[in-house]
Design a protein around this nucleic acid. Sequence first.
DNA 1: CTGAAAGCGCTTACAG
DNA 2: CTGAAAGCGCTTACAG
Lengths: 339, 339
Amino acid sequence: MATIKDIARITGYSIGTVSRVMNHHQDVSDKARKEIEQVIEEQGYQPNANAKLLKQTHTNSITVFIKSTCNIFLNGMLENIQSMLKQAGEEVKVVFMDENSDEVLAAKRICHDNHPRGLLFLGADLDHFRHEYEEMGVPAVLVAADGNGLHIDSLSSYCTDDDAGARAAAEYLIDHGHRHIGLLGGVDPDVQGQVAYKRYHGLSSCLKEHNLSFVRSRQYIPCEFSLEGGYEAGKNLLHTFPEVTAVFCMSDTVAIGAMRAFSEAGRRIPEDVSVIGFDGIDYSQFTVPRLTTVCQDTETIVRSSVNDLLMRIKTDAPSRHSMVPFHIVEGESVCQLSK
Amino acid sequence: MATIKDIARITGYSIGTVSRVMNHHQDVSDKARKEIEQVIEEQGYQPNANAKLLKQTHTNSITVFIKSTCNIFLNGMLENIQSMLKQAGEEVKVVFMDENSDEVLAAKRICHDNHPRGLLFLGADLDHFRHEYEEMGVPAVLVAADGNGLHIDSLSSYCTDDDAGARAAAEYLIDHGHRHIGLLGGVDPDVQGQVAYKRYHGLSSCLKEHNLSFVRSRQYIPCEFSLEGGYEAGKNLLHTFPEVTAVFCMSDTVAIGAMRAFSEAGRRIPEDVSVIGFDGIDYSQFTVPRLTTVCQDTETIVRSSVNDLLMRIKTDAPSRHSMVPFHIVEGESVCQLSK
DNA sequence: CTGAAAGCGCTTACAG
DNA sequence: CTGAAAGCGCTTACAG
């Protein structure tokens, strides 16, 4: 465990000079640089990150927080973010956290300890932002979540219009002749501002506007955004709403679970029950039949988010909130009903 | 950004006493403890982690490294590990890393900077261990990877016998009357010690022992362990080996991709092509048809790994390498051929 | 039970 | 271009 002192002693230079070499400062002679670099190499010297961060008043890295370690949807975006940021010459630090962790708390700690230049949040829980976020003097962006109404000056957001997406799904099913439409997903769709609330609202009001029934207790089954959740909800729906001919699932994962449930019940997809999902994860394109889904434009969401952050790091442009258009990917899981 | 100094000033105690309160030392008066705790609360004081770690010669946490952020198989195990460790009263720190990161390098840095009590590796790349691992004086365990032959004294490992698992899959297909068996998965199955090598070897030698043909260029298509990889490989196999009646896929993900490819080609599963996978991920039980697969006993792997680590932290028992039994989960993707 | 002080391994003005 | 020195925010023997 060599320290900077050891390197200084071995090379005969002072620790200040060693430090300058490590941090690629200009004002070091070529001779000193070469000698010191060689000894660092020989000794396999690694600077102590704690000491470094303790002294530095700011780092030049951007920190990305990503929640729910195994969310395919978020992970796909992370890769794009990393490559964009690196291409822009920014150093990136990724903090992975599980669903139960508090990303706002983590962000506060990191800002306090490491002073990053900017913050990106993937899979954010808006409740945490509402109750705990305080201005940290660092620009931040909510990626694929809606920060509008949070009234946090330093926070931008880019996301899909969940209400409009759910409406589009409903319209799509109605256009295909469906009149008995079920809805699956969301543990607590009455909490305003939640994704589930908006998708519930989008679908249900669209049905009503078309004078189609939407009896919540029969046509809607809440469930977690998981395979198992979708599976159980799908089974239940067949009992509460047996005349169903089409189902909108609030996520692709829910849709895949539900498809399994429908198959087991002997309903063919799409002939007996049509299914449409939301998100556009990879898996949705490998199911049999291939899933029709409301595909979020993650590429644009990511690009806008990163550009916004970089811009606000450099200038002090104001934050903004923007909805990014989605589109429907037509798979094989929705059929046209004869009218 | 209050520091320990501020707390000391406000309470009128010294920073030493404040530090003792924060670290729950015994020798502090109740009065001091109460007063200091209250001010800490009021100020929302968070100790600077860098300063803390810089001073501490060791922490009492166990660090878990998990690679490939979105590997369903690994993520399932992580949850078990966390709950077991917490139940045992251990503090856990999880380091998530993407596929391209070097977990051994990260481990070295963390040992250097943070001095954990033990290390757990999920999704380890054995090459990194072979070439870079050096004794860090900390017990470590490879979870679900085979550390035998690495000759690292401080390293234990618990994993599935890949060779035997592949053999079991082959036997299962043969028992069901299949004679034309294909194999999918593994980018470079010639590298000894790799998972792909062992699964390749297990299947191919089992077929030969049964006097069944295994012509590599026809019956084997290498591919990445991904949906897309499995899909492309599945398509190719139908060209190189059209008489195929059953396929062993080196992972469930590959199997799901391949099933899609077979469906698109008009081959019914299992009537025309039977499919068996490996791992036993959640998704495999939600496909239509449900996947038959060689299921790794992740619960036992995790339990053994954690117990081993805890034991070696407390005593200096020797490390060990052990294979954990697997079992075949019968789904609906393999059919019995009439003999 | 408490305080004063040394020191963890770095970085960074400040001189020269 | 280089060195000596202060100091980041903590912890921990050492006295008392």
